[in-house]
Nucleic acid binder design. Structure first.
Length: 259
DNA sequence: ATGGCCTGATCTTCAGGA
């Protein structure tokens, strides 16, 4: 089966390209982030016409995650159990579901904004809650993976210029320690191969020609347990989807599984 | 290719993204 994760930066703005990509890529299960819509606005009907069921956790113009699947979609849990609030509310940043033989999460980890910002502390709390919430499934025998926009570059090799990011979020030691904490539960970073250049970046800022210059970051990650990682046949960043008009600022990460 | 960001709402200006 083919499973992927994609921060679409508004599913409404991305819908024509998203539907075309689902068909051309032959993706069976897609974890989506930044739907930027209400649950009512989510295009479940258009996806149903392509044969995909949808599970959505979204509440408006910010955030929002979903899982769409054509191989089953069961036991949906919306939200992050035990997750922190921001601004007095639980933001829609997580959803888990069982799709055929695999249990998956679609996660949109808080950005953090700046290291001194309240949002950064929230980011670390959110990641601690994620670790606690996934630990049991991560240690289990069923193929399990947490896919999404982690808003963290795991190593300095995962940003186009480490000196550019000094003092900024996404590369700090506490954020990388939170990723290490997730790995302690039994999850492994399923690193995709790039289709061009040396680094499998998944995000390039819209500004200043970052994509043509390959000034990117690898922040969209697939963390899978041993039954999942052991079934991986191939994984790659579909940078073709970052090109042209109407592209997201992220590219899909695709994983092929022997399942 | 000779370029220099995009999204949706508070809607002509802004917050947020990272």
């Amino acid at each position: 089966m083919r499973i992927a994760t994609f921060n679409v930066n508004s599913i409404t703005a991305r819908l024509p390209r998203l539907l075309a990509w689902l068909e051309s890529s032959g993706t069976d299960v897609l974890c989506i982030q930044e739907t930027k819509c209400t649950a009512e606005q989510f295009p479940a009907d258009a996806l149903k016409e392509l044969g995909y069921e949808s599970a959505v956790n979204a509440d408006g113009r910010w955030n929002g995650v979903a899982v769409v699947s054509r191989v089953g979609l069961d036991d949906v849990v919306k939200g992050l159990p035990g997750g922190p609030e921001y601004g007095g509310v639980q933001e829609p940043r997580a959803l888990s579901a069982t799709c055929g033989p695999v249990r998956v999460w679609s996660v949109y980890v808080p950005n953090g904004r700046e290291v001194a910002h309240e949002h950064y502390a929230y980011k670390l709390l959110w990641l601690a809650a994620l670790k606690a919430a996934v630990a049991e499934d991560a240690a289990g025998d069923r193929p399990f993976a947490v896919l999404g926009d982690y808003n963290i570059a795991p190593t300095d090799a995962d940003v186009w210029d480490p000196s550019f990011f000094e003092g900024m979020t996404h590369v700090t030691e506490p954020e990388r320690a939170a990723l290490a904490g997730l790995r302690e539960t039994g999850l492994a970073d399923v690193v995709p191969r790039p289709l061009k250049y040396d680094h499998p970046f998944t995000y390039w800022d819209y500004r200043q020609l970052c994509f043509p210059k390959n000034r990117g970051m690898r922040i969209d990650l697939v963390y899978g347990n041993e039954p999942f990682a052991g079934a991986v046949k191939d994984s790659y960043v579909d940078r073709e989807e970052r090109k042209g008009k109407g592209a997201s600022d992220h590219a899909p990460v695709v994983v092929d599984l022997d399942l």
